[in-house]
Computed example of a mutant assay.
Amino acid sequence: MKKTLKDVNVSNKTVLVRVDFNVPIKDGVITDDNRIRAALPTINYLIEKNSKVVLFSHLSRIKEEADKAKKSLRPIAEKLEELLGKKVFFVDQTRGKELENSINNLKNGEVLLFENTRFEDVKDNEVVKYESKNNEELGKYWASLGDLFVNDAFGTAHRKHASNVGIASNISESCVGFLVQKELEMLAKGIDNPEHPFIAIIGGAKVSDKIGVIDNLLTKADKIIIGGGMAYTFFKAQGHSIGKSLCEEDKVELAKSYLEKSNGKIVLPVDSATNNEFKDSPANFAGLDLPEDQMGLDIGPKSIELFQDLLKGAKTVAWNGPMGVFEFEHYKKGTVGVCEAIANLKDAFTLIGGGDSAAAAIQLGYKDKFTHISTGGGASLEYMEGKVLPGIDIIQNK
């Protein structure tokens, strides 16, 4: 078990907190502040404990010097100030005297946010990737700015960066914040210690993106429902005609091997909502074999019914990946149907592993109907694969 905030003494200390403020910004305005709100419990706890709170985050990728003008954390500092109801000091630097002096001048209970950590990836228009390649000198420098480190950014926990692994490797004490603590507890309950029957639902475009998840969950789940574009690679493996549907030809044999070793655990759709091109117009419907001029863009009504029946009585459900092109009005029914089925389960532990399935559930109005929706798509996916998350692994144990 990793140290949590309650395991360390933060009072009167300068606490470095890696948060995930990677939020969408359009024309300088934040369009979704959920990730900022998710960090508030940790920040407020540190304020109450009279810590000097030093926050930092990345925002998108920085590929050239020109990116920096539109990817500053300044709008986030203003939004955080509004949400906290107190002053947030902002330093538009990632290192140097101005940052050091501002941190040294902080009083107990005050909050400072410094600039986008990914600004360290480009210097004088040269791509150096100091942050994202975990530059040793940068990790040591950031660690020198505080007394202890709190990782509360689950969204980057699968990355080995200077702002998580680099700092934690070079500071005397580290722990996870409340957001990461909850993520780890929920994922452990849903994936490592599930109550049975345990049904996993895996969707999305590509088998290659989910190989590790299927491998790991075949040993744990009672059934694995597969939908989305990846289902057509499995149909091809079964010898069905898939028309113009998405298919990873180099993964057909792998899909065949999964079907053979799953002993009936893998459940595929039985029909599709199709179109003759990738567009949002009224659907056609096909059974297991698609006409040559059609592509599958969603599961069909019989598949929705099949999946809903399978989910009845489930005690644990883990879902990663939509059933179709849910962004299209005519091809969101499969994802909505699965959402509704999970939302209506009584006494079940229901988990969404971030990414597109989380976006779909929130967008479709089911945000409060799940036990837990992960804030980290890539991190939760790797957890579901059974991988070690470097940003968590480096944190001190209790």
Rank of each mutant, 00 (worst) to 15 (best):
R118N: 08
L310I: 15
K49W: 05
T335H: 01
L306I: 07
L148F: 11
K346T: 13
I47H: 04
L217M: 02
E277L: 14
T156M: 09
E82S: 13
R118L: 07
C175I: 06
K302R: 14
N193Q: 10
V23A: 05
L16K: 02
R159H: 06
A157S: 15
I36L: 02
I373S: 09
E253F: 11
K13D: 04
A273P: 05
N135G: 06
S174T: 14
L5S: 10
A360M: 09
L179C: 07
A273F: 07
I62H: 03
L381A: 02
D280P: 04
E81R: 06
H196P: 04
E340V: 09
G155L: 12
V336H: 03
E110F: 03
P24Q: 13
E327D: 09
G203L: 04
L5W: 09
N276I: 14
M323S: 15
S257N: 15
L184Q: 10
D347H: 13
F154S: 00
K387H: 12
T350Y: 02
L83D: 04
L106Q: 12
G334W: 07
L73N: 03
L46C: 03
S357E: 01
G109T: 12
L306H: 07
K71N: 07
T94M: 09
F119W: 15
I225P: 00
K68N: 05
K265G: 08
A273T: 08
S11M: 13
L113T: 01
V165D: 01
K6R: 13
Y383R: 00
K13W: 04
S60D: 11
I25V: 14
E305F: 07
S144W: 09
V270L: 13
E136P: 10
I304N: 00
I62R: 00
V317Q: 06
K79D: 00
K189P: 02
